[in-house]
Simulated assay, not measured.
Amino acid sequence: MLAIRFDRFGGPEVLTPVDVPAPVPGPGEVLVAVEAAGVNFADTFQVDGSYLDPALLPHVPGGEVVGRTEDGRRVLAKVAHGYAELAVAREAALVEVPEELDAARALALLTQGLTAWHLLRSAARLRPGESVVVHSAAGGVGSLAVQLAREFGAGRVLAQASTPDKERLALDLGADEPARYPLARRADVILDAAGGELFAHALGSLADFGRLVTYGNASRAAFAALDPGRLGRLNASVVGFWLRPTLALPGALDGPLKELFALTLQGRLRPVAGPEYPLAQARTAHEELLARRTTGKVVLRPGAV
């Protein structure tokens, strides 16, 4: 079968289409014929060595797929090696996907949707009427966070994005206005995956008892040490978030995901489908993602040319 593999750490150039044997499910596992594989920023960290031990090379990346089981069920699944025509998933972790929900939107709701849901509900503990600033508001997580903030009762939603077109997308999704630092009014909640300069601006822009939730470092800039005394003077907090350990908690997956499915099918939530690439063009997909030239959910399609 066709898969995308890297044999050494590096940039997108190390991603190579290869022919490999089909995986064999073990006890409690099922084989999934991949309809589409999601591309996440975290995948680029696997490729450059930030997430993986060298002993795990060679490696097929990809953590999520939509596909069909051998008995015909259409499912959404967390997997270990999703950039392939076939993947193995735990039976207990499969989520059946309605036929009317296309693969790109379903994939957007798994990693990005659950991240946005937990950022607002679990990490920030958003209260009705509070103001929310969303960084990278046209991206996979950001575009959903803008909408969910509104759905969860935020009073004002401000969107930070890297280009005017991305700002317009965020406004179309429900943001009240673009975020410009310094903010005209301090914010109760700020969601940041960029780090670097944006993190510094955000920290100084929190209202009393505001929460800055950090869930990534797309800028790759080194974080300055946080002075607890400064947090005290700001009367604010910084909250770290990572989806992987969160999903190990009871009720962290099924309930939120079912709510996201329902909101989407009701038309109240619009996952943004980004560009789609043939599986063999995974390198191009990573290049575009890293260059911030994509919006919404990026997917790879086995069988596409």
Rank of each mutant, 00 (worst) to 15 (best):
L173Q: 00
A116W: 01
G142Q: 04
V141A: 10
S136V: 11
T115R: 04
A145E: 09
A154P: 12
R156S: 00
V134L: 04
A159V: 04
R150N: 08
D165A: 15
G174V: 09
L114V: 05
D165Y: 10
V132W: 12
R125P: 00
A175P: 01
G113F: 01
R156H: 00
T115Q: 04
A123I: 14
V133D: 11
D165S: 15
L169C: 11
E151A: 14
H135G: 14
G129N: 13
A116E: 06
V141S: 06
A149T: 08
L171G: 05
D176W: 02
L144I: 13
G113R: 05
A159E: 02
L126T: 10
G142I: 07
D176S: 08
G174M: 04
L144C: 07
S122K: 08
T115H: 06
G129Y: 14
R150F: 11
R150L: 10
R127L: 14
Q160S: 15
K166T: 14
A116L: 05
H135M: 14
S143P: 03
S131M: 13
L119A: 07
A161R: 02
A116H: 09
A137T: 03
W117H: 08
A149H: 02
Q160H: 14
G140H: 10
L144Y: 04
G139S: 09
A161Q: 04
S131H: 10
V146P: 03
S136H: 06
L171R: 00
L114M: 05
P164L: 10
L169P: 04
S122M: 04
V157R: 00
E151M: 13
D165W: 13
L144S: 09
W117Y: 09
E130L: 15
P164W: 13
V132H: 15
R156L: 06
A123T: 13
R127D: 11
L144Q: 09
P164V: 10
G142V: 11
L114W: 06
D176K: 07
S162Y: 05
L173I: 11
S162H: 14
G113Q: 06
A116G: 11
G174S: 07
Q147N: 02
A175T: 04
A116V: 01
W117M: 01
A149M: 01
D172F: 01
V132L: 13
L144E: 10
Q147L: 01
G129Q: 09
E151H: 15
A159F: 06
R125A: 14
A175L: 05
S162N: 15
R150P: 15
L169S: 05
A154D: 05
A154E: 01
R121H: 12
S162K: 12
R150D: 13
R156I: 00
V141R: 02
L120P: 14
L158F: 02
E151W: 12
L148G: 03
L173G: 02
L119Y: 03
G140S: 12
T115L: 11
A170S: 03
Q147G: 02
G113P: 10
A170P: 00
A124R: 04
L148V: 05
L148D: 01
L173S: 05
E130S: 15
V134R: 00
A154L: 08
G155W: 00
P128D: 05
A138T: 14
V134G: 12
S122L: 02
G153Y: 06
G129S: 12
L171D: 01
R125L: 00
